[in-house]
């Protein structure tokens, strides 16, 4: 990812209020659940001994779902850490 784009996203992220971040977290978790189910379905299809062409296709789809879930999890982790950090700041202020 380009540095400029990353910085923009970070700035955007930092400016968001907690409510928006919570909503985002929920949406991403929802989609991650669906993606996990999709991954399971793909694995079942792969176990059913498909022909070479279909196997290749399924493996490609699995790789993509895996990468998307990895990205999603990283985002969830960042959102959680940020929430914890914000809570800690507030606690120390009091």
């Amino acid at each position: 990812m380009k540095t400029k784009k990353l910085l923009a996203r970070l700035a955007d992220f930092m400016n968001k209020d907690r409510g928006t971040q919570r909503e985002e977290l929920e949406h991403i978790r929802e989609v991650l659940k669906k993606l996990k189910k999709k991954e399971q379905r793909l694995r079942e299809k792969l176990d059913a001994d498909p022909d070479d062409e279909e196997r290749r296709e399924l493996e490609g789809k699995l790789e993509v779902v895996h990468a998307q879930r990895t990205k999603g999890l990283e985002r969830v982790k960042a959102l959680r850490e940020n929430r914890r950090g914000t809570s800690a700041d507030k606690f120390s202020e009091t």
Binding site: H27, E30, V31, L35, Q68, K71, G72
Partner: peptide
Amino acid sequence: PGDRIADERLALDEGDIERI
């Protein structure tokens, strides 16, 4: 809007696709 945000965050960019 939630779906659009999730799509934006999880979609693979050119670099990701090329790496895979």
